[in-house]
Write a protein that binds this DNA or RNA. Structure first.
Length: 290
DNA sequence: TAACCATCCTGTTAGC
DNA sequence: TGCTAACAGGATGGTT
């Protein structure tokens, strides 16, 4: 499940291979991989071929590669999307789920291929226009409404705290709201809430300013640690551009740990249904208060 | 306006 | 053994 650390690992892996590269060919095998592209597959391929790529950028879970002239190649990996970097003639493993293939010509690395592989087709590529933000940088139009992520130097801690303070919904719902804070998904929301001893359904507005600051600090810690370990991989559904899994799954304290003893107090971690997904927490350390 | 939920999708697993 | 249902979850659009 690609969240911020996983997408950043992909971005770092792609950067040396795509920066300065020319798109020489595009093959779309499954148009469902273009749900974010507002025109036909032929338009996607036709307008992408011949464009030169700049250094990949990221906000939250969105990744994009600015193109010469204007616009950008936008990517969202959804649940199971992968961007794999291969030799130009290679076929990736799991051929059945290859949705799009890009052929690149790199000035020093030569011919390369980027495969967009996606089992559950929640991910998508698109060509999008870039629009300026208030801070002076540019983002694709589809990313304009997304909040900056907590690893972004321009992330506004005070604005986030103010948003938390006026939200009556559960704090976990706020963490998953990409217009409040981006890059956090189900895994790292559960981990950060466990670390700061907050019940996922604790009303956001009930948090003290100090608790909100602590939560934000834990979010940054857990994201940074996951990034250093290459991200979280389950069943090979997330891999870097070379197809390698991350190691953070070994460091999880809450997510997927239901039935196992809490690392702090030994009480079994519980799993409950929440927002059409699962929440994992320690019923002793993370009590619903107020 | 805020809050909440169904929907998209497919491989895996549990249950019968 | 084989079938069916439940489950995983990010973003979005619709409903309350």
């Amino acid at each position: 499940m690609p969240e911020l650390p996983e997408v950043e690992v992909v971005r770092l892996g792609l950067a040396p291979a795509v920066t300065g590269a020319l798109v020489t060919a595009v093959e779309v095998f499954d148009e469902r991989a273009l749900t974010r592209h507002d025109r036909a597959a032929g338009d996607f391929a036709g307008r992408l071929v011949g464009r030169r790529m700049s250094e990949p950028r990221r906000r939250g879970k969105f990744l994009w590669v600015p193109l010469d002239g204007q616009g950008a190649l936008l990517a969202h990996l959804g649940m199971t999307g992968q961007l794999l970097l291969r030799e130009a003639w290679a076929r990736p493993e799991g051929d059945r789920h290859v949705r799009i293939r890009l052929e690149l010509g790199h000035p020093s690395l030569g011919e390369l291929a980027v495969f967009f592989v996606d089992q559950r087709t929640f991910g998508s590529l698109a060509l999008d226009e870039l629009v300026p933000t208030a801070a002076g940088d540019t983002v694709p139009t589809q990313v304009a409404h997304i909040a900056r992520d907590p690893m972004d130097p321009l992330f506004d801690d005070a604005a986030f705290a103010a948003k938390v303070a006026r939200k009556n919904s559960a704090i976990k719902r706020v963490l998953l709201d990409q217009t409040a804070i981006s890059g956090v998904g189900n895994i790292y929301a559960d981990e950060a809430l466990w670390a700061v001893r907050l019940h996922p359904e604790q009303p956001a507005s009930s948090l003290s300013a100090k608790k909100t600051r602590a939560l934000l600090a834990e979010i940054r810690l857990v994201l940074a640690k996951a990034l250093t370990e290459g991200g979280t991989s389950f069943d090979s559904q997330y891999v870097n551009v070379n197809g390698q899994a991350g190691y953070f799954a070994h460091s999880l304290n809450a997510y997927g740990q239901d039935g196992k003893p809490c690392a702090r107090c030994g009480t079994p971690i519980v799993r409950v249904s929440f927002m059409n997904r699962s929440s994992h927490f320690c019923p002793r350390c993370q009590r619903l208060r107020g």
